[in-house]
């Protein structure tokens, strides 16, 4: 049934992604594709995989953005702009618009832990849920004709045949920089809740009213580049011997 759970789910499982830590290595993209092409549901197909126009289904993609502060300069590597690597997968929204638009009941949000899933045997591949999602979390698999999305590795996190350390989503387990964290947002004492509280975790596009469960930790503030220039290039703040030397060198 494509109605959302009427009560808040007792667990809110999701991810915290630390934008200050992510180095943009794409390891989580590959690990996600590898696990999920052999796991839950249809394989994640590629089209024209060895040709020039290769494309395929991915549940997790990394975008890289350049952010320029107001009045900041963009001068190659010496400018004030900064690069932020931005991993993006399903946010398992509390008010998931992709669920309610589904005409067949294939798209649903679990009332136990809040994970948003697609029952592929019911999916007709109309694509309306992908239209409803403002985040681009859903991609139609062109070979299977069904909608694919992040399952939060539902086939790992409850899988008792795996060692306990592996019972986290594949992207979290593989991240070499420790930028991705998995936990229960309904528990205020959980690792993810504490991180979000301490670092001011961000919800993406809150104005869309989707109430995403996943949160992003913002990049930490950075000093303006000018203030970190070595003294030889910028002598304004020189004192003592260096001030004397600066003055002497100016005079000769």
């Amino acid at each position: 049934m494509t109605m959302l759970p009427s009560l808040p789910t007792p667990k809110k499982l999701g991810l915290v992604i630390d934008l200050d830590v992510c180095v943009g290595c794409h390891a989580c993209v590959i690990s996600c594709k590898e696990w999920n092409t052999g796991g839950y549901g249809a394989a994640l197909s590629d089209q024209d995989p060895y040709g020039s126009d290769v494309s395929g289904t991915f549940l997790n993609r990394i975008h890289t953005f350049e952010v320029t502060p107001d009045g900041g300069e963009v001068v190659g590597e010496a400018g004030d702009a900064r690069i932020v690597h931005f991993p993006k997968s399903c946010l398992h929204c509390e008010d998931a618009p992709c669920v309610t638009v589904c005409p067949t009941g294939a798209s649903y949000k679990r009332s136990s832990d809040g994970i948003v899933l697609v029952d592929e045997d019911k999916c007709i591949g109309c694509g309306l849920c992908a239209w409803a999602c403002p985040y681009g979390a859903r991609e139609m698999d062109l070979a299977a004709g069904v909608m694919k999305k992040c399952t939060l590795c539902v086939d790992r996190i409850y899988n008792e045949t795996l060692a306990e350390i592996d019972r986290v989503p594949s992207c979290v387990r593989t991240c070499p920089a420790n930028a991705r964290h998995y936990g229960d947002f309904a528990d205020p004492a959980s690792n993810v809740s504490i991180m979000v509280a301490e670092r001011g975790g961000i919800a993406l596009m809150p104005e869309q009213g989707t109430r995403p469960v996943n949160k992003y930790l913002p990049p930490r503030p950075r000093k303006p580049l000018a203030s970190t220039l070595p003294l030889a290039e910028n002598t304004d703040g020189a004192k003592g011997f260096f001030a004397w030397l600066d003055g002497m060198l100016d005079r000769i």
Partner: peptide, 12 residues
């Protein structure tokens, strides 16, 4: 708003 990075500046 999509990236949550607007507090730093303009996103491209």
């Amino acid at each position: 708003s999509a990236t949550g990075l607007g507090f730093i500046g303009k996103v491209r």
